[in-house]
């Protein structure tokens, strides 16, 4: 694991959040959500701090982080692209849309582009099945996406 330096102000923010949660072990998942909000991802160093603050083993924290797909240990791109692979989207061709993103960005699912701009991930149903297939880029939602639309979506962010 590569050692990284965490900015002190962000670390303090995280410690404050742990204190706000009373250093309760049971709040681990809430704390991890907050930590991912602060740092964008959950590197080992952040998990060490969380373990220390909540008085649980770092192995336990890591066990929880790797269990839940929402948590990530790799930084996401500036424009994180998520393709919904829920059933409704799947039957309406989400896989082809995903393939097109992978092809055009030359990335695999879970990877981030070298310049840090884009990352691709799959989602399980965002609850917008009426718009299937659905793609989100950051907060923006694209509905009824066809493979031909992919190029245009990427171009918006380049």
């Amino acid at each position: 694991m590569a050692d990284i330096k965490l900015p002190a102000n962000k670390v303090q923010e995280l410690r404050d959040i742990c204190a706000k949660f009373n250093h309760e072990k049971g709040e681990l998942i809430n704390v991890l959500h907050a930590a991912q909000g602060i740092f964008g991802y959950l590197p080992a160093e952040v998990q060490d701090i969380v373990a220390e603050e909540l008085n649980v083993s770092v192995a336990h924290v890591y066990g929880v982080v790797t269990f839940y797909s929402f948590f990530t240990m790799t930084p996401k791109g500036k424009y994180p692209i998520s393709i919904c692979m829920g059933t409704a989207c799947y039957v309406r061709g989400a896989e082809k849309v995903l393939d097109e993103f992978k092809r055009l960005l030359d990335l695999k699912v879970g990877e981030t582009s070298a310049n840090g701009d884009f990352s691709i991930s799959c989602l399980r149903c965002v609850g917008a099945c009426g718009l299937a297939p659905v793609v989100t880029v950051g907060e923006k939602v694209y509905g009824r996406v066809a493979p031909e639309d992919v190029k245009g979506i990427i171009a918006e962010y380049k």
Partner: peptide, 11 residues
């Protein structure tokens, strides 16, 4: 924790 893909009535 509405997790069934394709269901969003709870939401």
């Amino acid at each position: 924790d509405e997790g069934d893909p394709g269901a969003f009535m709870d939401r």
